[in-house]
Each structure stands twice: as C-alpha cells, then as structure tokens.
Design a protein around this nucleic acid. Sequence first.
DNA 1: CAGCTAGGTTCGAAAGTCGAACTCAGCCGG
DNA 2: CCGGCTGAGTTCGACTTTCGAACCTAGCTG
Lengths: 161, 161
Amino acid sequence: MEYLDQDTSNCSVGRAVGLVGQSWVLLILRDVTRGIRRFSDLQDHLGVSRSVLADRLGGLVDHGLLELHTYQEPGARRRAEYVLTEKGRDLYPLLTSLRQWGDKYLADPEGPALLATHHDCGAPVRARLVCDEGHVIGAPEEVDRTPGPSARPRPTADVPA
Amino acid sequence: MEYLDQDTSNCSVGRAVGLVGQSWVLLILRDVTRGIRRFSDLQDHLGVSRSVLADRLGGLVDHGLLELHTYQEPGARRRAEYVLTEKGRDLYPLLTSLRQWGDKYLADPEGPALLATHHDCGAPVRARLVCDEGHVIGAPEEVDRTPGPSARPRPTADVPA
DNA sequence: CAGCTAGGTTCGAAAGTCGAACTCAGCCGG
DNA sequence: CCGGCTGAGTTCGACTTTCGAACCTAGCTG
C-alpha cells in the first residue's frame, strides 16, 4: 500500500481537473468541437452568463486550448472565432469517455441524444482502455499504479526536521 | 450544419458533467480507485473541507457511483468505507483520459507523478478511440455526429404556435 | 468517567455565478 | 452625418457555493 503515501498534489489528474474541471469548460469544448465557434452562438447554445463565458474563453486561450481568430467577410464587420488547438483537440477522447458513460447511465429511455460514428465506416465510436502491447483493459483492477519520476512523498506532520 | 440546431440540453455530455463535473468529484473517485476509502483518509489526501466532502460522498452514494459499507474489526469501533460500484468503476476510462492528457500537457519536466501499467504485461495503459469495426480514431474530424433517438430540435423564438 | 477517534454537521466569511444593463466599434439606411 | 443594429465583450448587485474552524455524537480505552 505504499503508493498511498505519495503526494497527489502534482498528479496529472488533479492538474487537469484544475483546468477542464471549471464549470462550463467541458461544455464549451464540446460545442466548439461541434463547430460552434462564435461568442454569441456559444452563449445561445449553452445558456451560460456572458461574463463567465468571456472568462472561460479567455482562460482556454491563455492555456492554449483555443485560439482566437478574427476574420472578415466582405461587406461585414470583423468577427471573432475560437478554434481548437492540438492541445484542445486532444481532449476529444475525454469528451468521448464522458458521453459514453452518460449514454450508458444517464440517457433517456429511448436512447442517447447524439450518435458519434466513424466517418470511414459508420460504426459507433467509443473510448477503450488498452496497453501498449495491445491488450484491452476491462477493469481498473487490471491496472498497476506506481509512482512516476515526479512523485513526491506525502508530507507528514510527525517527521520533525 | 443542421445538427447545430439540435438542443444540447439532454446531451449525455451535459448530464455527465452535471454529476462528475462538480468540484472534487473526480478527485474523490480517483482516490477511491487508488484504494483510499475512508472519510478522514480522503479528507487528509485531498485537503477538501469536511462539509463539501460529506456532501459529495452523499451525492455519489445517492447516484449509485459509490456504496457506503460499514465494517467492524474485532476490538475496534465501527468504521465506514466507500467502495466503487460498477457505475463508478465505469468512469475509470474517463480518469485515464484525464491523466493521459495531463501527463502530455501539464506534467513536470521530469515526467508524470503516477504511472499506470497493465498488470499482466507491464506496458503503459492509455485510452484510445476506436470504432466498433476496430479502426483507430486519430482526430475528432474522423467522427460524424448525428442526432440520436432522444434528440430534440432547438427551441427557437421565431416559430409561433 | 475523562479522553480519543471516526465521521460527520453547523456557521459566518470569502469566492464564484447569475441575469441585466452598459460599452464600444463598425456597418447600414436615410 | 445621424440614429440604429449587431457582435463581443465588461460591469454591477443579488444570489449561491465553498471555505475553514468549531462543534457534536458514538463507541472504545485507560
């Protein structure tokens, strides 16, 4: 059980939650992935307050998940558009895991509200746990957790200097 | 672009965010998955306030992600222990996606704090997008999104009754 | 029977979120 | 040139959530 004594404050899960666990962030990323890219369209679809939306979009740009592009169609005013960076696109597996879990446990009886299918073959898309040898992982019990290079021992109150 | 006019309020991503997107919930599930199962151990590892921890654990039990077991070792007081249900264990791919993304973009320079490896072969574990035909999905652009059985048209203000 | 521990609950203060109103710039019709 | 419209925010006071610290309660233990 010694890994329980590792500090989790620099665990990647914790850091990632700090970014994408803020309210509305995952929903913003879902909608941007769906092709909704403008401030007012996002506000319209999400129903979030403008102040929070502006704050979250700013944070996502600052952290490099989105880029703000301005473009101008002829005869129209300049408009802003938020597009995913690679860092943002790399969260798509996370969104898929979330959708998949929600479809299984929280969907309406008649089925999910959105189907994701492979563009090439039309088959449903899902997230799957695998190891680098190609084995499929079915349960958390099949996974060993060991401290990595940046693991720190947990600070204990009973060890004086 | 017609799928942009679907209502997203009953999308599984949104519902799932409503449950697991609450602050501390994913971190609680991470630690329970790691084997930390008692109230005070969780409070100790996470640094969350007791009131919020009690609220979140209660919510997770109510929603069937955790079960509260009480047990009594001989000569000791009765103690409580929170264990994952299948519904809770099924979030493990989500936690893995989160860890994987955090390891790639937010980890310390020397590497991640926690390594997850396959118990059978020792190879690193990762989440991967696949379709049911077995094709590996590399980018969100390879996925088609179509309205499912419970999709609703988006309420519009300009359609009178 | 006083003290300790596990597992909470209660409380006022601090932080976050809300909707509504306001700002600012560029385009448009008259 | 003037008033209005639209996109993209910012500001503001009310409301809600989260915080840390203190308190409570059972069941052991000396």
